[in-house]
Design a protein around this nucleic acid. Structure first.
Lengths: 140, 140
DNA sequence: TATTGTTATACTCTATAACTATA
DNA sequence: TATAGTTATAGAGTATAACAATA
């Protein structure tokens, strides 16, 4: 398989990101990925199950179950929308914010340890790369 | 939550990688992640179920099932080791190599499209960042 | 009729425990 | 006894189909 330089770069960057994500995910985290991303969204403001399902690319029943479990654990509250009683507004609780903070700290720990060993210039490279990745992801 | 600059950088880089991986994974791929990584390993040489289970951080029964399915699909062959008849040597087939090529092309396509829009300097940033990530991952 | 959310049911990938066969 | 691999069984997260309540 012969790849163009661009294809080779794209492949290696993708693989490096995959390895990093897998590496961090396999640590015992206080919050599974699907719970984490739902709470992270609610941290930015209230939402509904349908909105979250669309954003997370999962089915409505699947999100319904995730939301029910986060509710049981006390990480969010459900309030019927007074304007449209089919809808249920979801809000993050203080406990939800707290578990997000804990989970982020756990997940970041590995990254921070390794980034602390880099030179200032190398860290600057990573910061620029982060901005590029964000741009690539946002434009699509 | 107030973060040090390092913690903030680590968090943003990690989130960007997560989003990228998720974005690429959610495309309909010809090969699910656990099949992909097993075949990719076999591409580098024959292996055994136990070796693969250790490397992929899954249990022996889980790998046994994955291997059985790849065998059914014709992507690998199983040959009893003549020296130790408890062991079964796994080899990738031509069909296995072909599906890897297809799957890689699908997964890379999105990346390549977006990286092609960057300037040479921006691409160079990403290449340097890739090398740094690889170093961070390998040293641990 | 269309939409929000739920329940019923099943599939996939994972695990642990127990088994077979070889060493 | 120990190891390579499998089978039995169960749990977690996902899906589609069918339903209830509301618009």
């Amino acid at each position: 398989m012969t790849l163009t330089p661009l294809a080779q770069e794209a492949y290696e960057l993708r693989m490096a990101c995959m390895r990093l994500v897998r590496r961090v995910r396999y640590m015992n985290s206080s919050l599974a990925p699907h719970f984490f991303s739902v709470l992270a969204k609610l941290e930015c403001g209230d939402s509904t199950a349908a909105e979250l399902a669309t954003r997370e690319l999962v089915s409505a029943p699947s999100m319904s179950r995730t939301v029910a479990e986060l509710d049981e654990r006390g990480y969010l509250t459900k309030t019927p929308d007074p304007d449209d009683r089919r809808r249920v507004l979801l809000s993050i609780t203080d406990e939800g914010r707290a578990i997000l903070t804990t989970s982020r700290a756990e997940r970041n720990h590995w990254m921070e340890e390794r980034m602390a060993k880099l030179t200032d210039e190398e860290r600057a490279d990573l910061v620029r790369a982060t901005a590029l990745l964000q741009r690539m992801l946002d434009e699509s």
